[in-house]
Design a protein around this nucleic acid. Structure first.
Lengths: 338, 338
DNA sequence: GTGAAAGCGCTAACAA
DNA sequence: TTGTTAGCGCTTTCAC
């Protein structure tokens, strides 16, 4: 069916070794032979099998990308930058949406091993140290993006979540808010914990006490954010501001407020985290903590590929700074004189 | 490094043939041997190489997915359903964002061929018949989603774009609108043409004349939609409604209206197409023509996999019906008595 | 029920 | 400069 290296060799009247050499541009071959071989390859629309070459010890030039959900804009944007950088460096990417489900995660990883991917980028939230350690043991190059596992020696790229939480909260406090609810996604996830820690520290630094009744947990969906926010808003004497730990949750909070006829930002300030496309589309446009998604994506791929090429062995942990992006969902507190 | 079938065989005291049989559950092997082999495989954390097995004529169990941009919510959602269904049927998916750029498209396809993917799903808009014909010639299984190439014998899954355009326009007309602008994405793309055709037909069926000055073309970005809409809205005696041929363009139109202080839907009705997550997040929530993205994704994979497994050879073309999703950006025309 | 051996398409010595 | 050959890890007859 598909032409093989033998077909090319026969057609060009040379040996397969010669063909291999022109494919890989190695060794020395006469210019005429080279041209001849190249012509035959083009004529037969020949594409050397990476499958076969991988079997001889070469790379598959494929990396796996594990994320919670490709339909989640934050991860879709990460995926895009990973794909672009990967492509630039000669790697294809296999996408794996795990829904943060540990079984799917390990099933996908097992699959990626079978397919002999050259490396794996993890953005999923599960804290499955065991799986990762097995991978590490087998010397499978791994890099983490937007998640942290300080106990493991792996390349990591993330934003300073603590700082982000701190900035978000400070921004609100400076606007006069004192009762600030926080909606977090998952207390077991490191980044989530860090954002909360930043929130607490900001409160403390401004002489405000942390009130655990203001801390709410949700799953990582808009719907989850909506429900939790609805609950928050129905409490009397409720918060004047909400720090939603990601944009999706913030979207839910905006919806909940709208349903209750609460004006944003007049009656309620909302700040998100991530700065996905959603933040600029919703109304009012969302004030949020921006993650440098592009940079992060490019950086992980860079680190991973270096490891794949064995150009480096010392692991790196790069922490990028988040940036407050002020839009229209936060404003000075409105003192209600009723 | 990684254990091979030989390691397992040696460790279990059997031949590699036997190991192969238990891996694939073929032939007949004694229960004891089987258990023994399975234990060794587990102990050594052995993952049979799909690379090697693919070389012996078996499948790679991976498919390529070409889309314009994974960061575009519509395609991200398609990707998710393709991934899920693929996974269910035992296939991984390699993602390829082409930006509708013909060079990237052919580069990606060439790569996918080298990686010996079992099949390719195309959702990109370029009309490169040649590339596809080459693929067809080489019997590479192909399926199209959300795009149409009637001249080619390939499995295709799409929504009835004509119908969608017709319904969107009719909805607007029934609300009393007579001057309806349409923002299309790309006149060379079939689906775009069909939506426009539906628009024209709806006008005609309701006794309205098609005015080509109301037809505008944009790229497929929010920014593009914003610019075009801004132009539309700055014309005096302008349209009372806009049919944006996809949600992204509609988002742009909403932004443009907001910038000009135009109220939606009081002063201007807007309808989109796709029903991505954006439609429910923006404000007001977007009335749009819903594509059954989940169904479409599952269906293409189904068709493609059947072809891969050679269970069928007759190509199918399945056309799903779009559905009008009425939200808050369309309303009865407001007669301005000034 | 199990194993020996050929072969998948390619790479990389090593010869010539 | 070019060719021969031995694998890479697996599947699959075909013997035993």
């Amino acid at each position: 069916m598909k032409p093989t290296i033998y077909d090319i060799a026969r057609e060009a009247g040379v040996s397969i070794a010669t063909v291999s050499k022109v494919i890989n541009n190695t060794g020395r071959i006469g210019d005429k032979t080279k041209q001849k071989v190249m012509k035959v390859m083009k004529d037969l629309d020949y594409h050397p099998s990476i499958v076969a070459s991988a079997l001889t010890g070469k790379k598959t030039h494929t990396i796996g990308l594990l994320i919670p959900d490709i339909a989640n804009p934050f991860f879709a944007e990460i995926a895009r930058s990973v794909e672009d950088m990967g492509n630039e460096l000669g790697f294809s990417v296999m996408m794996c949406s795990t829904d943060n489900n540990i079984d799917k995660e390990s099933k996908y990883i097992s699959l990626l091993e079978q397919k002999r991917v050259d490396g794996i980028i993890l953005a999923t939230g599960t804290q499955n140290t065991t799986i990762l350690q097995n991978l590490l043991k087998k010397k499978v190059p791994i890099a983490l993006i937007a998640r942290d596992m300080p106990s493991l020696p792996v390349d990591t790229v993330l934003v300073d979540d603590y700082m982000g939480g701190y900035e978000a909260t400070s921004h609100l406090i400076k606007l006069g808010h004192q009762k600030i609810s926080i909606i977090a996604e998952d207390l077991t996830v490191m980044s989530s914990k860090e954002r909360i820690r930043g929130y607490c520290q900001a409160l403390e630094d401004h002489g405000l006490a942390f009130d655990e009744r203001l801390l709410h947990v949700s799953d990582f969906t808009i719907e989850g954010g909506r429900k939790v926010a609805a609950k928050i808003l129905s409490e009397n004497n409720s918060a004047t501001a909400i720090f939603a730990c990601n944009d999706l949750l913030a979207m839910g909070a905006i919806q909940a407020a709208r349903e209750k006829g609460i004006q944003i930002p007049e009656d309620l300030s909302i700040i998100g985290f991530d700065n996905t496309i959603l933040a600029s589309i919703c109304d009012p446009p969302l004030t949020t903590i921006a993650q440098p998604i592009q940079d992060m994506g490019k950086k992980v791929v860079e680190l991973l590929v270096k490891e794949i090429k064995e150009e480096k062995t010392t692991k790196q942990r790069v922490v990028l700074m988040p940036k407050l992006e002020i839009r229209k969902t936060t404003s000075e507190i409105h003192i209600n004189l009723v």
